[in-house]
Structure formats: structure tokens, C-alpha cells
Nucleic acid binder design. Structure first.
Lengths: 348, 348
DNA sequence: ATGAAAGCGCTAACAC
DNA sequence: GTGTTAGCGCTTTCAT
């Protein structure tokens, strides 16, 4: 790969002149003739500045990093793409780092590596199985050092977390599902989800709060893993048939759980929404095309990402210490075919 | 962030000693006492080597880049994750670069940027709408310069492409769907897909070859866009109802198209697989859970990725010029509920 | 209008 | 055992 030096040798001038001309091709500081020759050579040799050297010299890379564990789902995919686009719109490059899932140590390692690579700022989105606030301790260092980052829609306990952070209001999400079902006349409403994760805890809390405010008893179905895979929805129903038969409606932790559950319900000869209404969560594309199409609680992905990026650049451009800021985005209800009014004749 | 120099100052020795000790903590070249002090300081100051500087100095970054346009689908997600894992297994970091979709210029820009960032090798996976071989010209430069890269499952015309390349045998995929349906007794078999893209052309060619070898006439349904979105499957059926009613089986460009098509068929009161059998392509997770579950042609993702990574590292470790190599991976048929024997009584 | 020189942080060959 | 020195390629200040 051609370097500034090589161009300088070809043209027969010093490398700093070449640099100046390439950085500012129109500036009349150098004679038009020299400028032309340099530009020609650069094109001819296919010159591309070495970004490692540039970053080292400038102390910045014009790159924003995104640290996430896998691309866990369709929703994760949409976030990734939107984030990429918005960061590009700001004239920054975008770099995605996939951390190993699970432990806080992996999260720390991922963040450290991205900093070591000279990222000018980080969007961090990781699902932590550890709920306690000790899982946030490593952020204190970032805060103290004034390193720009925003925690993004992360299912973690945020008490005591002192940085910038944008999340979806999952308590509200859990509540909205119940409110929707209550309006349709349902009272025996179940909730199916995994038992771990702050993520889950919040939705389940919203469910519980809404049920209590309507004077209804809780009916939870727990599935084994924190993974939101189809199979767990299927198994959840199949292994709790009796409890399911008591219900007229089921709120699900995710669209995938809902799809698996609906598959199981069909196999059991229980009609959706006729005998049981089902609400999902995530607004996966597929929900629109399945039969019945899926009523769901949708995270406003664009708004989430937009807010995150705004916050990050506010942080990057300001020189003062970051204050603690937590922005919660409200979800939206999308009504489709999988929910309907409770059947009058349904057995108690 | 702490530097080698700062540690050296604290400890009171030269920076090269610090470097040597940190690079080789157990080597007895330095006195145990000094080694201890250096290691302590490094931990205390939270030293992490600056990867830009390291990469610049060493002329390599121990990082493999993945260049792709968006993460177009569930299958893309799986590839991304598997690629990441295999690259990590080799002791390399993994960096994902999402290029703007569409033009060859964007592809070139993406590749150039990754090289400028010091990637030691690249896996390139882009869908090109341009079918001609001129879309491959920029790879010649990479070949000549001996830069290590592997073209990965890219729907493009590979005549004249002189590098390493791993693809799915999509002609075979198209053929397999037809063979499966013929074995079930179907003869009026349609194919639905977009009209652009090498990707499409191959599947369609497999369909055509298989149909001809059985002496059957082609029945193609074309959908507008190259996007493999659900909606197009739905629209494709709804806008070609007459043609659809002639069929006893339908082979689809993708699982998403299949899902949309099945939704439409249901709305039209056409039962699947009773009145019409449907085969998808991709093996999206969702295919297992929908009703009817989806018979599909599955790309062996792990094998594709494994082969790609093997090839890339072979290239990285060898000093000789790359030969041209093209490895085609065979897809697999997964039979589920959406296909069944043709109904005897079906109207001609 | 052009160039010399120092520096970013890490690496590596070699000297003491 | 430890230090010196030059260099990776780009940037930036200051001199000519």
C-alpha cells in the first residue's frame, strides 16, 4: 500500500507537503502545478491513508463502536442497522464488536478492546444475567475518565449507575399487554417468560402491577432458560397444559415465545384468539405474516437508537463531566389477529 | 490511558525493558524483582496496549474483518455469529463492517477502509445486483497484491474471478426442491422469486433444469424487488391468483417469501399442503414453529463458514501467490409439514 | 511556497 | 540485566 512518503519520493517533494496537499487539495498555499502532480500520483498509486497511523497521530479515529452480545434477534438486527446509519450520518465510521455472552468480565474485556482500538465513543448493549449493581462497577472508571459511552437498552439493574443510558420502559410494556387484554374483557391472564434477567423481571413486574390494579390473580408460567427461543414457548405450553387451559389470555416475554406457544396451542386444538388470546413482545417482522397475525408490544427502535446517538454525540462534544442521565422510551401496542374479546360462553 | 512510557517512569526503568517484561512476563532476562514491580504497576495503572500503535509497529493487527451489506436476514445473523466464533478460536479478533448496500463502489470503499484499518484478512459477503463479471474487477488488485481474502457465499457471477471463494450450490438448491416435489407426485410446480440477482438466477436455473429433466413446463411467478421480504411473497400470490390456482406445488426463493405466500394462500382458502405444497429456502428458525411447519432447503451454515475460515487462514499463512479456488457447498433438504403427496382428486 | 523535525505508543534489533 | 535507537505512517508546528 502506497504511503505519503512514497508519493513524496515519486513527485520529488517533502512528505509534509504531500500531506498538506492531500489534506487540503484546494488550498493555494502550494503551487497549482505541485498540487496537480501530487493528486495525480496519489490516485495513480491508489493511496489510502493508513487509519492506524492516522488514529495514533490524531488521538482519535472518527469511529463509534457498538458492543453487544451476539445479534440476539431480529430486533437486535434492526438496532444494528439503524445505529450504523445514524453514526454514518454524523460522519463517523461504525464498528461492531460482538462480545462473548454472559459474564461481566467479558463485557469489560470487550469495552477495553474497543477503547484500545481508539474508538471515540461506545454504544454498549449487553444482556447481563447478573442483576446486582456490582455488575455496573466497571462503568465508574469510564465515568471518571470521562470516556464517552451510552448504555443502550440493556436489561440490567441501573440503580447506582452514574452514566448516560437509554432503555425501553419494559415495565410499561408488561403493563400495556395486560391493559389491552383487560379492555377486551379478559381476566384470567397468564404471563410466560424465563425466570432470569432484569429484562424479564421488568416485564413481569409490569404484568404483576397491572394485574393487581385490576384485582386479578397472577398466573405465571416459567420457562427454563433466558434464551428467547421459539422452543421455549412451545415447551412452556406443553409442560403446563392444565394451567394454560385455565387461561383466556397469555402475555408472552417475546414474539418468539409467542410463536412457539401458538404452535403448541394449535397442536392442542386450542384456537387463537378464539379460546385464548396471545400477546407477544418485540414486533418481529414475522408477526405480521403468521396466522393468526400477532398482537405485540413494539419497541420504537428508531426512537431508541436516535436518542442513544444524540446522547452519545452530546457527550463526545462536551468537555465537562458527564452527569447521570437515564432516558426511558415508551413502547407501542400493535393490535393484530391474535387477540380478541373474551368469549362469553367460555367455561369459568 | 496508561502507556508503556508512563509505567517506565513510575518504575524508574527504560520503556523497552517494560515492554519486554510485559510481552514476556516469565522470561528470566530481567531480575524477578524488576519484573514484579513492572507487572504490579501495569495492573495498578490499568495498562492496556494501544492497539493502533501496536498494529502500526507490527504491521499486523491480528484481526479478521467481515464485510457484508447489512445483516440481511436470520441466515446472515447465524453466519455472523459462527464466523466470529471460528475467527476467535484461531486467536484472532473479529471486526464486522457493514457496507452500504448496492453498488460496486460501496464494496470497494468498504474493502479499502478495512485494509486501511489493518485487517490481516477479509471475509467478503455482498449481494451484487450487477451480475456481470466487471463487478469483480476490483478483486484483481487484491489478488495481485496478495492480500488475503475469501469471497463468501456471494450471489455474484464468478466467471473470471481469480481468488478464493466459497459458495452455496444454489442451482442444486433449486433442483432439490423440484425433485422433492416430483417424488411426492407433483407435476404442476411453480417457482416464485424476484427477477434480479445472480442469487436468484441460480435457484431459478436449478428449478428450470429439474423441471425440464422431468418433462415439465415452467411456471414462474415474478415478484418486484430483490428483497426477500415477507410482503413480496404475500403480494406475489395475491397478484397471481389464477396462476397459483393451477399449481399443486410452489417452490420459493426464500423462507420469508414462503411465509408470506402461505399467509396469502390461507386468506384465499387454499390449504397447505392439502391443495398446494410449499417449499422454502434458508431454514429460518421460524419455519419449524409456524403452522404448517415449513419444508425447506437449508444452507449448511457451519460448513460454509468453517470452509471459508479454513481457506482464509491457509491464504494468510502461505507466502505464495493465491491460485483461484472455488468451493461449492451442497444444501440439505429438510422435510416438514408444508409439503405432502399431491391429492389424487385434484382438478387437472 | 516548501521542508525539517518531533511526536503519537509500541516494537525490535542491538549495544553496553 | 538493562538501555539506546530507529522506525511504523501520519500529523503538526515552526522555520526557511
Amino acid at each position: 500500500m502506497a504511503t505519503v512518503n512514497e508519493i513524496a519520493q515519486e513527485v520529488g517533494i517533502s512528505k509534509s507537503s504531500v500531506y498538506q496537499i492531500l489534506a487540503n487539495p484546494e488550498h493555494p498555499r502550494y503551487s497549482p502545478a505541485t498540487r496537480q502532480r501530487v493528486k495525480k500520483q496519489a490516485v495513480k498509486m491508489g493511496y489510502k491513508p493508513n487509519l492506524l497511523a492516522k488514529g495514533l497521530a490524531e488521538g482519535k479515529t472518527n469511529t463509534i463502536g457498538f458492543v453487544a452480545c451476539s445479534v440476539s434477534c431480529e430486533a437486535g438486527r434492526k438496532k444494528l442497522v439503524k445505529l450504523h446509519d445514524l453514526v454514518n450520518d454524523r460522519g463517523y465510521s461504525f464498528s461492531f464488536f460482538m462480545m462473548k455472552a454472559g459474564s461481566v468480565e467479558n463485557e469489560i474485556a470487550a469495552i477495553d478492546e474497543m477503547r484500545a482500538r481508539g474508538m471515540d465513543g461506545l454504544v454498549i448493549s449487553t444482556q447481563m444475567s447478573q442483576v446486582g449493581k456490582e455488575a455496573n462497577r466497571h462503568f465508574f472508571r469510564l465515568n471518571e475518565q470521562g470516556y464517552p459511552y451510552v448504555l443502550f437498552d440493556s436489561g440490567r439493574n441501573l440503580s447506582d449507575f452514574g452514566g448516560y443510558c437509554v432503555t425501553l420502559d419494559r415495565v410499561e410494556a408488561g403493563r400495556m399487554a395486560v391493559e389491552h387484554l383487560c379492555e377486551l374483557g379478559h381476566r384470567r391472564i397468564g404471563f410466560i417468560g424465563p425466570q432470569t434477567g432484569e429484562d424479564y423481571r421488568q416485564k413481569e413486574q409490569g404484568y404483576a402491577l397491572a394485574m393487581q390494579s385490576h384485582g386479578l390473580g397472577l398466573r405465571k408460567i416459567t420457562i427454563p432458560d433466558m434464551s428467547a427461543d421459539y422452543k421455549f414457548g412451545y415447551q412452556g405450553v406443553m409442560e403446563n397444559i392444565e394451567a394454560i387451559r385455565e387461561l383466556t389470555a397469555l402475555s408472552c416475554y417475546s414474539d418468539k415465545i409467542a410463536v412457539g406457544a401458538i404452535r403448541a396451542l394449535k397442536e392442542l386444538g386450542i384456537s387463537v384468539p378464539g379460546q385464548i388470546a396471545v400477546v407477544g413482545f418485540d414486533n418481529d417482522d414475522m408477526g405480521e405474516m403468521m396466522t393468526p397475525s400477532l398482537t405485540t408490544i413494539a419497541p420504537p427502535v428508531d426512537q431508541l437508537v436516535q436518542t442513544t446517538v444524540d446522547l452519545l454525540f452530546e457527550r463526545i462534544q462536551s468537555y465537562n463531566r458527564p452527569m447521570s442521565r437515564h432516558i426511558e422510551i415508551k413502547p407501542e401496542l400493535i393490535i393484530r389477529e391474535s387477540t380478541g374479546p373474551v368469549r362469553p360462553g367460555k367455561k369459568l
